[in-house]
């Protein structure tokens, strides 16, 4: 039996066992006392499947999913653009960099989730606060990664530009931007993942729509099937987004390897 086949069989086996325990665990006498096996609390695969069907086909869940995705996408666009540009400004203007460094470090290391209440109170429960929350995650990630990449630029390459009579603009376009771009690509899947977290969290805290809000609605109604259904949906979306982000990154792969990124 080849290794690959063995792995596949084991994977399927594990999956089957997990599903079986989830579905039937509560029926083992005595187990239902533990909240982990109480079907009221954790639901069951069949109920979750039913809940998913209900959500998508009867309760317009798809609209919520699209909203969450749209907010994440918008945040990506804004966050990446801002982070990218700021990193270049910082790198090329040492004064600005030194001036802003402690402030940016502070906002980077503080738990950014504390701005959620402010976003809610200032902007309400709509689209905007979600985008802002997600952007805050994405901006810092991109900013620090691109800045780091630029700071690791080889002096030998810089000298080469000078030797070939290139000026600062030449260095910017032929050296800095490709490097910055490669590092941004490297951070991209993580930016997507964190942006997604930010969006969902804001929906949690106070959103009138989106997957996060549906989850809260399910929780408030003590409907564990709905809650688990949204978890499953989020898992799938999260995986899909990260995978997409990685594919985009792969498209520039060979070139990145040279840089050691």
């Amino acid at each position: 039996m080849t290794d690959k086949l063995r792995v596949r069989i084991l994977q399927v086996l594990i999956g089957v066992v997990l599903l079986a325990v989830w579905e039937f665990g509560s029926r083992i006498p005595g187990m239902a006392k533990f909240p982990l096996f109480d079907p009221f609390v954790v639901s069951s695969p069949i109920q979750v499947a039913q809940a998913l069907q209900r959500l998508f086909f009867q309760e317009n869940f798809g609209k919520h999913v699209l909203l969450t995705l749209a907010a994440t996408g918008a945040a990506l666009a804004v966050g990446i653009a801002l982070g990218f540009v700021m990193a270049f400004v910082s790198f090329n203007t040492p004064l600005i960099r030194r001036l802003t460094e402690p402030f940016l470090q502070f906002f980077n290391t503080m738990p950014r989730v504390v701005i959620a209440p402010y976003l809610l109170m200032a902007f309400g429960t709509g689209f905007m606060p979600r985008v802002l929350m997600a952007t805050s995650f994405i901006f810092f990630l991109v900013y620090f990664n691109v800045l780091y990449g630029l700071s690791r630029m080889q002096p030998a390459h810089r000298r080469q530009v000078r030797v070939l009579s290139g000026g600062r603009l030449d260095e910017l376009f032929t050296l800095q931007i490709p490097i910055g771009f490669a590092w941004m690509i490297r951070a991209f899947p993580h930016a997507v993942a964190y942006g997604f977290v930010g969006t969902v969290f804001q929906e949690f805290v106070g959103g009138d729509s989106g997957v996060g809000s549906v989850m809260i609605y399910g929780l408030n109604a003590l409907n564990s099937a709905t809650v688990m259904a949204t978890v499953v949906t989020l898992s799938f979306l999260g995986w899909a987004l990260f995978w997409l982000g990685s594919r985009v990154g792969e498209a520039f792969a060979p070139w990145r390897r040279e840089l050691g990124v």
């Binding site: 792995v7 594990i14 999956g15 909240p35 954790v42 989850m215 688990m228 989020l234 999260g238």
Partner: peptide, 24 residues
């Protein structure tokens, strides 16, 4: 063998675990 399951758990945006954990 465990990779797909661990990746699935990892893919869930972290905050989404809160309602589940709270229920349990």
């Amino acid at each position: 063998a465990s990779a797909p399951y661990l990746n699935a758990i990892n893919a869930v945006p972290r905050v989404a675990w809160v309602p589940v954990l709270t229920m349990v």
